[in-house]
Write a protein that binds this DNA or RNA. Sequence first.
RNA 1: GCCUGGGUGGUGGAACCGGUAGACACAAGGGACUUAAAAUCCCUUGGGGCUUGCCCCCGUGCGGGUUCGAUUCCCGCCCCAGGCACCA
Length: 828
Amino acid sequence: MNLKYSPRSIENKWQSVWEQEGAFAVREDPEREKYYLLEMFPYPSGRIHMGHVRNYSIGDVVARFLRMQGYNVLHPMGWDAFGMPAENAAIKAKTHPAKWTYDNIDYMRSQLKKLGFSYDWSREFATCDVSYYRWEQLFFLKMYEKGLAYRRSAYVNWCETCQTVLANEQVEDGACWRCDQAVVQKQMEQWFFRITDYVEELLDYTYKLPGWPERVLTMQQNWIGKSFGSKIHFPLADREGSLTVFTTRADTLFGATFMSLAPEHPLVAELCSGKPEQAGVLEFVEKAKLAKRSDRETEILEKEGVFTGSFCINPVTQRRIPVYIANFVVMEYGTGAVMAVPAHDQRDFELARKYDLPVKLVIKPADAEPVAAESLTQADEEDGVLVDSGPFTGMTSAEAREAVTRHLAEKGLGELTVQYRLRDWGISRQRYWGAPIPIIYCESCGAVPVPEADLPVVLPTEVAMLENGASPLPSYEPFVKAACPRCKGPGRRETDTMDTFVESSWYFARFACADHDRSPLDFERVKYWMPVNQYIGGIEHAVLHLLYSRFFTKVLRDLGYLEADEPFMNLLTQGMVIKDGSKMSKSKGNVVDPDEMVENYGADTVRLFCLFAAPPEKDLEWSAQGVEGAARFLGRVWRLVADHRDALREAVPYDGNGSIGRDLSGLHRKTHGTIKKVTDDIRDRFHFNTAIAAVMELVNQIYQTLDSKPVDEAFWPVVREAVDAVLLLISPIVPHITEELWRQLGHAETLVRTPWPAWREDALKAEEILVVVQVNGKLRSRLVIAADATEEQMRKAAVEDRRVQEFVAGKTIRKIVTVPGKLINIVV
RNA sequence: GCCUGGGUGGUGGAACCGGUAGACACAAGGGACUUAAAAUCCCUUGGGGCUUGCCCCCGUGCGGGUUCGAUUCCCGCCCCAGGCACCA
């Protein structure tokens, strides 16, 4: 009776068995080692795509593997459910974002279940559930109390299409990360999280996360952008006050011959007021601001500047130096003012040549004479030795940076400082489908936090969406009208919602909790599970979600909600799924639908292909033939059992006791070698492709063995041992077909509850081994010799070998290199 | 410009600590079974050479080096992908 492999019925059957048994539900167990495995949760966009399938297949293999190894594995799934696509879709389909979102969740959940992923579904939640975001509002209040959430007016990135503000991290090449619309700068009152308070710890820990990919860490380090330098105050020449610059090159201070301000610098208007240059300056400023917006992502602008009419004093030379405004100086970095040292900074050099400003050389190469400033064709930006710099002349750049600054500090004109690129996280979004910010504005009391007892501020779901895409909240009076919590007078609610990245900044801790109503985080449970041992997701979140989550975890720790310093101990960034050379997308028409694939081939084949075709961190090229190949392999495994079921059922797996023939001992050895290889590949490297290849080799060898006739009573036991190993080893990858075959072989327990197989060292040893013989590093012969041969015996066998003799004939052997059990190299 | 990765057959990829380059697949070609097809199974498959041997030479982006031995380590280039960037 040869049942044909028909994935659909098998997969349905085992999925419901697992569900009925609650096979993947976990609770805290101090007796067992915990392992928290998490894949980035999806946005419920409608249907899962191949990227999800790949991401979750990788995670599922690890979860199932570790469970079989005896770990207490937490493997949850949920939904990153707030966000703008829901609003857009709802407007288009004339429905409500909530309905659209929850419908999508229902469908996508069923898709994930059909793929057989081993989640503890009892922990599922969506971030748009009131029971989730209510606690986020509490965190906001706690952060507000500690000054970690604050409101200020600022130039912010505004996306006209999305009708909302974007964080710096959400602007890519000057355009919105989601819709690609060019971002404009707009001055607005916004709420910020003070991520800069944690900048040092965030940076420090990038050196303490060995389980993260190097490139993600360096991306975060670049984003944080720490640089050491000095703040130097230049007194204004004809009035009170001073201009402060940030520089990393205090050693070049004697060469500062003018000053450059950003067009947005707050002192610009004052400095030119009443001067003949005023009109020209204001015109220049307007032009520069416009140009910045439109050309930000394109070519670097030609350097231009304009004199303000004012002067300041170089604090070491005491010279009056002109104050310019320059189009390349950015207000957001440093102080928005730059001391210009044309001899030693290329940008300043270009400006000086253009406006005929003095160029003064103050650094020379350590081993050469200084050149004349007039003959410079470009700035010399290298460190060197100071010249023409008063008491500092002769010092090296490094010495002078400190000495000059110390000298200034004594006079109150400067200080050593550290500058970061990272800026605070603007979290206000002028969107509807998000968590309301729990603030009420009162005419007399200003911004007043909603009292804890009044939480949650529930997002009203009875509102109608507006056609133009703007948030309906500001015009929805029942929501907006609220009494001031402080003076009870009339107030208006904040109608901005929080950036959806706030929700994804703590969901991983929430999965560890049981009681979702009474507290935000269940301290003891979170303590047991956190941090996440292994996090798996796409590289695109390298500085967004992965930085925000690290920050938020530290905030929650300092607020006393959890203990972990970092959310994710190990990070695996999986590659994209591509087809015909580019990422799958509707516009390219190269999308492969997971549903269709599961329908045609079954979940096991789809999972197998995703894991076999490439190692997880590399991009995966989708190949229809590759899928066929995966299906073919499963067919071979199926027939292995189906064609020999009775003989296999009756056989007791060989346990290594009792002598067996040469071929059978080869299979036995291969079985144990494969167990070792697969275990190592999955545990240490997540290289499922090579693990699968190893099992394929074992399957091939079983078929070869079956081709020989059963000659002794050990035959079926040895084959049975090998077949059992095959099923166990690939069960995390293709869980359904293996459960079915395992059951057919007479096992009573599911594979899910069966321990991972162990290999026996003694079974790996062969009596004879293959030794490679080289002459002068070139492969010349292979020898089969006894495994316990001494080096002496190896050498003797090699030298006596017929083929080796041909190459050695007539030459003197100068040296013989021996690698025991592996290789001999004869040097002549 | 700076910082990460990466470059191996027709294709995806393997070679884990410097030791048989191309495992395992896909594709292609040939064959078996079949009335035929599908399915399945077997063989060949980096390039070149002749003396066709379980032979020889070449071959892991390019050029050098270290070593008995280099896809692997070092130096100098080229190319591709990603990140940062008028950042003072």
